[in-house]
Write a protein that binds this DNA or RNA. Structure first.
Lengths: 265, 265
DNA sequence: GAGTGGTCTAGACCACTCG
DNA sequence: GAGTGGTCTAGACCACTCG
C-alpha cells in the first residue's frame, strides 16, 4: 500500500480531491499529512468549513484521502496546535471561532536593527553599579529572594543619532560571572545571549513621553515620544535579567505577523 | 507491550529516568510522547544539552524511554516545530543556537482592553466615506487592482478619556456587504470579526508624536506620545481591511510572551 | 452504551547527506 | 555505502463524553 496515492481512481468527488493532492505532491514533494493539513486549512480559510462546523470524523477523512488513521490524525493534530480546530471525544472535530488576534512578534536585537537600517552601530556604556535588589526590583523581576544585582545603563547609536537607551539589571545570583565582564566593550544583551543561550522572555510594549533625565541622555527633548520595551528573561533557575529599552519615535517598528499557534482561547 | 511503563526496572540510569517519567505520568496523566518532550526540553533549558549538542539518535532514545520509534519521533518533531532542535538526515539531531527573540503577542480587541481596564467602553464614529483606492491605498493594502474603499474614522473611549483613534479602510471588492452596515452603531472591527471570521493579519507597531489633527480628535496636545498600530487583514481572496489605531500613551500595554514556535532561523 | 478521538506499537520503505 | 531521519501503515487498547 506504499505509493498508494499513485493509484487514485479518476471518478467522483473523492477521486478528484485525490488527484489534486497528488499533483501538489509531485510538484512540491510535500508529505501526505502536510497536504491533508493544507487542504483542510484552505477549506477553513475559504469559509467552506465555517467556525463551529463539525468536520468529518477521522474514518471519513481516511476514506477521502485514502490513507491510514495516523496520517489523518497527524494532520488534524497540527491544525489543533495551530488553533484552527477543536477536538472533543465523542462530539467530534470543530472549526474554532477565532477570538481576538494573536501574532508572532520578532523582538529585534538592537545591533541588528541598527545595521539593518543602514547606519553604523555604536554602543556606549553610561554607568555600572552593583547593589542589593530593592522590593521594587524583586517585584518586577519576580524574584522570590533578595539578590545582588548588577545594573548597566547604556546607549545604542545608529550613526550619530541615538537609537535606544537601555537600563538593565542582571541577577548576580543567577549569573555571578556577569560581575567579571567588561560591559564597556560588550553590550549586556550580547554577552547574555551567548552566555545564557536558552531562556524564556516576557515583553511589555508601550509608548511613553520621555522624562527629562532619559531624554537628556538620548539627546532628545523631554516629552518626546518613545517606544518603551520592558523585558524579563528567565531560565530554569529563575529570572536572569530585566531590561527597559527606550527607542526614539519612528526609529523602531515592530513587525508582528499572523500566528497560527495559540489562536484559540 | 501496552502499559509498558509500569514494568520499568529499578536499577541503572535509564530505569531511574523511567521511574521519574512514570511518576510524572501518574500525577498528570500526560502522554508518553509529551513526557519525553518535556524531559528533553528540560535538558536543553538546563544547558545539560547546550546549543550545537548532538542528542542521541532515535534508536537510543527508544531504548532510554522504552518506547517505539514513532513515539520518540512525535516528541522530537514537536521540539523541532518549537525551534529547540534541528534535524538532519545522516547527521543527527542538534540543539539549535537561539538567535534573537520571538514572542507571541496578543493584539487586544479595543473594547475588551477598555473593559478590562475597569472603565465603561464607548464608541463613536467620526466619519464615513466611500472612495476609489489611491496608489497609496493600494500600496499599503497590497491590492493588485484598484477597488472602491469604505473609510471609517472612529474614537474609542474608556470612561470620559479617549482610549484610541482609529481610521480604517475596508476593501469593498472583498467585502461588498460592508457598504450596507451602519457603523455609527457597530464598530467596524466587531462587524468584521463576526463577518470574516478566519483571516490573517500583519501588524506594525511604533511610537509616534501625535500630529495636530489626530491629537485634536483625541483631545490631546499635539506632540503627545502615542502607540500606533497598523494592521492589514487578509483572507484567501486578498486584503480585507487596513486599520491605523492610535493609543494614548500608557493607555495600552502590549504583552508578548516567549514563543516556542519559530524560534530558530 | 457507543461514538469519537488519543495514543502507542512494530514494522516498513524511502530520501537525504555525510564521509 | 551507510547512518539517520521522514513518513506511512494496520492494528490495537483506551478514555472521554454525549445522549
Amino acid at each position: 500500500m506504499y505509493l498508494h496515492y499513485v493509484s487514485f481512481g479518476t471518478y467522483g468527488f473523492e477521486a478528484t480531491r485525490g488527484q489534486l493532492l497528488f499533483k501538489a505532491q509531485t510538484n512540491e514533494k510535500t508529505s501526505l499529512h502536510q497536504r491533508i493539513r493544507t487542504d483542510i486549512e484552505r477549506r477553513i480559510l475559504a469559509n467552506e468549513w465555517p467556525p463551529g462546523f463539525r468536520i468529518p470524523i477521522e474514518q471519513e477523512l481516511m476514506q477521502e484521502y485514502r490513507c491510514s488513521r495516523m496520517t489523518v490524525n497527524k494532520a488534524l493534530s497540527g491544525l489543533v496546535a495551530a488553533g484552527f480546530l477543536d477536538r472533543r471525544k465523542k462530539a467530534g472535530t470543530f472549526v474554532v471561532y477565532p477570538s481576538g488576534h494573536h501574532a508572532s512578534l520578532v523582538i529585534p536585537d538592537i545591533r541588528k536593527a541598527v545595521l539593518e537600517s543602514g547606519f553604523p552601530y555604536q554602543y556606549r556604556m553610561l554607568g555600572r553599579s552593583e547593589r542589593d535588589g530593592t522590593a521594587e526590583d524583586r517585584e518586577r523581576m519576580k524574584l522570590t529572594a533578595s539578590s545582588p544585582l548588577l545594573e548597566v545603563a547604556s546607549l545604542h547609536y545608529a550613526g550619530t543619532n541615538c537609537f535606544a537607551y537601555e537600563i538593565r539589571q542582571i541577577c548576580l545570583t543567577a549569573s555571578p560571572e556577569a560581575a567579571q565582564i567588561d560591559f564597556t566593550r560588550v553590550p549586556p544583551s550580547v554577552w547574555l545571549l551567548t552566555h545564557v543561550p536558552w531562556s524564556n522572555a516576557e515583553h511589555h510594549i508601550d509608548a511613553v513621553a520621555l522624562e527629562e533625565d532619559v531624554a537628556g541622555k538620548m539627546g532628545l527633548l523631554p516629552g518626546a515620544a518613545s517606544l518603551k520595551l520592558r523585558r524579563r528573561t528567565w531560565a530554569e533557575k529563575g529570572t536572569i535579567t530585566y531590561a527597559e529599552q527606550y527607542f526614539a519615535a519612528r526609529s523602531l517598528t515592530l513587525h508582528a505577523s499572523f500566528l497560527l499557534q495559540a489562536r484559540n482561547g
